[in-house]
Design a protein around this nucleic acid. Structure first.
Lengths: 258, 258
DNA sequence: TTGCTCCTCACGTCACGTGAGGTGGC
DNA sequence: TTGCTCCTCACGTCACGTGAGGTGGC
């Protein structure tokens, strides 16, 4: 017969863990010897190993009792569910490995060269430093969240700068950020509405569905609205022109005014 | 600027988690707006994503602060350590998947056929039912702990039954379990010592180093000593014949008397 | 006799979850 | 006005860890 220490060592757990399983009723309390010590037989070892195997697979102890009591088909179904979760968890850890590697390779989140050159191009177009910093913040967020998609998204962004209408819009937004007057606001709103009307947007990122645009654009919009004084007014003007909500219909456009 | 809810949603965490990171000083408290609401900028998003990436890799929050503050080489070293742990964890989960599959495939720990046939052979040799049940318990333990090695170990065990000396030993131990007299004990001890002297043991399992023999034999010894009245006496007799400790020197032998 | 194992409370820990009770924004 | 978000305590949870104080086995 085994003491609790021998049992625990054999199953690779602590003595405290075994006592815990007794406490919550997962493992049956064995007989005691003359000194009040618990004495275990072979079946206890088997039970404990089954408990550890399932718990090691991530099954909560509270659900584990049911599984052990389940009949064969129910048990098999439980095993399938556990196996799916294990596969998901392994996938998650593989993805985490890549992310961690990116953290190290990216020299602690300095932006990749394609973003740097993009920002340089914006500067060369005469946009204000404030506008460029807003852009920079946005791209840091994208790089942190979707490092794998950054390259293709940037390719689209670079191509976009070849469109004179968009360049004009950027310049307007930049001036507005620096406190441009009402006439600029109206011009920007007209341009925005026109671009929206042309359905210019779908190809704008050059990446189609690559990035989860909704959340990102919502985020950047939120950052933009609070940081620029004219943003609320611009939104109003846009509404007058028939675009109830910029974020929902054309999320990529107003990101640019951060 | 972002509210705590937007920040949390973007990083894929709960609002409570963000507050928790503030509480323990992992994430800097941002400015508050007129209503006392926390307002976050882009850098907070980046910090939060880094925290989540590392925490998702299993780094304890208490160590995470150091990592974020570390300089580049120290950070790189930390990343390597994390990556090793991630690989280990993935390996562990893969192994767990196999174990779980065994649990289901083994129809809830019914013994595999090669063990059943082995036990049948023991019965055919005239061993008592008590002896066979002891063997059964032992093999259940082996099957639960080293399912992958069971097949090769059993092959060795089957071969072993072709040795008349070992069969003789088994019969003696079986009789002793059922209350055999002193003369049987002496005979068994002589036979054990002789088998040990012949260095018969190293090939006994037929599997070399396949199973972690020490722990298993220690366990089975413990189960055996308590369950059979003659075990202590047999150990004494064995000591008289120059075998100070059966478990240490020839662990495979006395397993058989369970 | 010393050191190790065992026993039972019972509080601590880690990373949040979950109301409790109240205020602010659309 | 209603519903949703935000705020601060503060207790709860999960799976044990960790002494506290005492007894038993070699």
């Amino acid at each position: 017969m085994l003491t609790i220490g021998q049992l625990a060592a054999y199953a690779g757990v602590t003595v405290r863990a075994v006592r815990h399983y007794h406490q919550i009723g997962l493992l049956a309390e064995p007989e005691r010897d003359a000194s009040g010590y618990r004495r275990y037989g072979a079946p206890a070892v088997v039970s404990l190993i089954r408990i550890r195997t399932l718990a090691g697979a991530g099954v909560p102890l509270s659900q584990l009792g049911e599984m052990l009591d389940a009949d064969t088909p129910a048990f098999a179904e439980g095993v399938r569910r556990i196996d799916r979760r294990l596969r998901d968890e392994i996938e998650r850890l593989e993805a985490t490995r890549k992310q961690i590697a990116q953290l190290a390779a990216g020299d602690r989140l300095v932006l990749p060269p394609e973003v740097i050159s993009y920002l340089d191009r914006l500067r060369a177009l005469g946009l204000s430093e404030r506008m460029v910093q807003g852009e920079r913040d946005g791209w840091i967020l994208v790089a942190a969240r979707w490092p794998d998609h950054l390259r293709e998204i940037m390719a689209g962004k670079h191509a976009q700068l070849d469109d004179p209408q968009l360049v004009r819009l950027y310049r307007l937004l930049s001036e507005l950020l620096d406190g441009g007057d009402e006439s600029r606001l109206v011009e920007a709103a007209d341009l925005l509405a026109e671009l929206a009307r042309q359905a210019y947007v779908p190809d704008e990122t050059g990446s189609g569905q690559a990035a989860p645009d909704d959340m990102l654009s919502g985020l950047l919009d939120a950052l933009a609205v609070e940081s620029s004084p004219g943003a609320h007014r611009l939104l109003e003007l846009l509404r007058e022109r028939g675009w109830a909500s910029w974020t929902r219909t054309r999320p990529q456009r107003l990101d640019r005014q951060a």
